[in-house]
């Protein structure tokens, strides 16, 4: 197996008790001693129900949240030890696609502005001129199945699936190696979801990307990911190859989740 691109080592996160208008809130342990390694070029599925700590983990990977304990390493570098300048440079290599394409695009920015913004932010690394940026934006749009004619349009002119393609193009703009996909298809209809999933597969094959795919939709995870980790209440319950987990889940939680998964086929009940 290739070397890990992302290592999460014994990460815990506790949100402290706060004093509010109504008294003190209890301490919340969002992550408990989570250890995961994601390897170059793989699709790693992170599955958990609401409140399981998926989002906290994602935010920690982006270093938007500092773990209370443990380390997160990107290509062997500890995120917590990076200087702000190094961290900013690293962010060009780790990008995220959010769940809701209706909320994650600024309605006042044209598609050109949206897709070229990461190139401006990371100008010191990419060093693209204005025209080069526009060319690159057009190239990215055709990569995700849109075209240069869409550059001067605004988000409201696009359907949900097209918007998610714009979000993907934006995430690819800084030339990342690791993409965090936070439920990228759960706001889309199935027919559109299928197109976006195929696009993600194709992009991975072409660009050699590594995916961390966060989802609660097990069918989508089974389709896209080669390895899966299940988290429940902040703890890693089970981790392994997708087929192994779906065919022979070891933990009771995994069995329950897989059993609860609605499948579009007729289940003959044995009486």
């Amino acid at each position: 197996m290739s070397e890990p691109i992302l290592q999460i080592e014994n990460v815990s996160k506790t949100y402290g008790a706060r004093r509010t208008l109504f008294g003190r809130t209890a301490e919340v342990q969002a992550l408990k001693d989570v250890t995961i390694a994601v390897h170059k070029g793989e699709s790693f599925g992170l599955v958990g129900e609401s409140g399981s700590g998926k989002t906290t983990l994602t935010r920690s990977i982006l270093h938007l949240e500092t773990p209370s304990a443990g380390r997160i390493l990107f290509e062997g570098q500890d995120l917590a030890r990076l200087s702000p300048a190094d961290l900013r440079r690293l962010r060009a290599r780790v990008q995220i696609v959010f769940q809701d394409p209706y909320a994650s695009l600024n309605p006042r920015m044209s598609v050109r502005d949206i897709v070229t913004e990461p190139m401006l932010v990371h100008h010191d690394i990419l060093g693209l001129s204005r025209t080069q940026r526009t060319d690159r934006a057009a190239e990215l749009l055709s990569l995700v199945g849109l075209g240069p004619q869409h550059l001067s349009r605004y988000p409201h002119e696009f359907s949900g699936g097209q918007r998610q393609r714009i979000c993907i193009a934006r995430a690819l703009a800084s030339g990342p190696e690791l993409l965090l996909l936070d439920e990228p298809t759960s706001a889309l209809d199935v027919s559109v979801q299928a197109q976006v999933l195929n696009l993600l597969c194709e992009l991975q094959d072409r660009l050699g990307l590594t995916y961390v795919f966060i989802s609660h939709d097990l069918a989508v995870v089974r389709y896209l990911c080669n390895r899966v980790a299940l988290i429940y209440r902040g703890e890693l319950v089970e981790e392994g190859a997708t087929d192994a987990i779906f065919d022979a889940p070891k933990s009771a939680y995994a069995r329950m989740l897989i059993g609860a998964m609605p499948e579009a086929r007729v289940r003959r009940e044995v009486s």
Binding site: V192, Q193, A194, Q195, L197, Y223, R265
Partner: peptide, 23 residues
């Protein structure tokens, strides 16, 4: 049929889901 084909199942191979073109 198109809706059914767009749902990922155990048998679907990576990259072979059939989306529905157009809107």
């Amino acid at each position: 049929q198109a809706l059914m084909a767009a749902i990922p199942t155990k048998q679907s191979k990576r990259g072979t889901l059939k989306g529905l073109g157009g809107s």
